[in-house]
């Protein structure tokens, strides 16, 4: 449980735009995910969550930084090694309509994964049926095309494709945000069951705080390409430290009118990531910002038991191991 399956160090992805401008989609992100753990990543749209997931798998080349999977840097691997490593690191996509080739039957979609794994062709039907069964689809699905399925069923096919190669790490890139609310819970529960059954480790990216809370052991909050707070789910939701996390949690509507109280909504828009504000990136929208926040970049520091946050106004707490 304590062994780090995935260790990301100072990961950066800067996109070069026209006229010498750069967009810092991910800017110096570090974290570890232990085997069997689920790390949730939340943030507004455009904060770099999706790019983070893609760069971790090297589907998008990072500008700099290191990603260790089982203590081996993904960015040092040769194409052949990377191909092998990818069987252990899979991804579930956000849009189940775009993630399945409309011209391929389900059996071919799963077959593509089985081929990558090196399963002999005569075993494909058997293996494909087994993995479809795991995600709750019947074998009659095999001969059908993606357009014959609903969004939730398509997402199950996407999950089946990822699981067919027998991965240890699954990057879930907003796997339920394109689905109906009623279907969302089915998929979330399915992912939970699969994790227990197959001893999976998740990097779970989402913008829905409730979804992340339900499934995550720890949660990282991203703002403009950086992690501003990272803590065990329970303590993050119970006692958020960073002003941005507080504001995010505040924005969640509470169904009980008596508990609503004063809702503090963050003002303004997320700044343009092409020219992030100096100092703390959140200071323009922060209700408690002081002069120092405009100049110094706050580092991610320990502010409680396994609780990290990047804010000048928080006291650093030395963790006793």
């Amino acid at each position: 449980m304590n062994q780090a399956l995935l260790r990301v160090e100072e990961l950066k992805k800067h996109y070069n735009l026209a006229k010498g401008r750069t967009l810092q989609a991910v800017d110096g992100v570090s974290f570890t995910v232990r085997a069997g753990e689920t790390l949730g990543v939340v943030g507004e749209s455009g904060c770099g969550k999706t790019t983070l997931g893609r760069t971790v798998l090297r589907l998008v080349e990072a500008t700099s930084g290191r990603v260790y999977y089982r203590d081996r840097n993904v960015y040092d691997m040769s194409p052949v090694e990377l191909r092998e490593a990818r069987r252990e690191m899979q991804i579930v996509f956000q849009d189940p309509y775009a993630s399945l080739n409309p011209r391929m039957k389900v059996s071919d979609v799963i077959g593509e994964a089985l081929e990558a794994k090196g399963v002999p062709r005569r075993m494909w039907t058997q293996e494909a049926e087994a993995v479809l069964d795991k995600v709750g689809l019947s074998r009659t699905a095999m001969s059908r095309y993606p357009h014959e399925f609903s969004g939730g069923q398509r997402q199950r096919i996407g999950i089946a494709r990822a699981l067919a190669v027998g991965p240890s790490l699954l990057v879930c890139d907003e796997p339920v945000s394109a689905l109906d609310v009623s279907v969302q819970s089915h998929i979330i529960n399915l992912l939970g069951e699969l994790k227990r059954e197959m001893h999976l480790t998740y990097l779970f990216i989402a913008h829905d705080l409730a979804v992340v809370r339900h499934i995550s052991d720890r949660v990282a909050v991203m703002y403009l390409g950086q992690i501003v707070e990272m803590a065990p789910a329970r303590s993050l939701y119970a006692a958020p430290q960073h002003p941005y996390t507080k504001a995010l949690l505040n924005a969640v509507p509470n169904p009980d009118p008596a508990k609503r109280g004063l809702r503090q909504i963050i003002s303004g828009e997320i700044p343009n990531p092409e020219c992030p504000p100096p100092g703390c990136r959140f200071h323009e929208r922060c209700p408690v910002a002081v002069a120092r926040c405009r100049e110094d970049v706050p580092a991610l520091k320990s502010v409680g038991a396994s609780h990290m946050a990047a804010c000048h106004l928080l006291e650093e707490v030395k963790e006793i191991d």
Binding site: R54, L57, L59, L82, R83, E84, R86, R87, M89, Q90, I91, F93, Q94, D95, A98, S99, L100, N101, P102, R103, M104, E112, A113, E115, A116, G158, R161, A162, V165
Partner: peptide
């Protein structure tokens, strides 16, 4: 740039297999 091509890369398939499977038929 389609996600199913990305999925194919994530599975470890090379460019030529992707061309045959996903690009040509479409």
């Amino acid at each position: 740039e389609k996600e199913y091509v990305e999925a194919s890369r994530a599975l470890g398939h090379g460019r030529f297999k992707i061309i045959r499977r996903h690009i040509l038929p479409n």
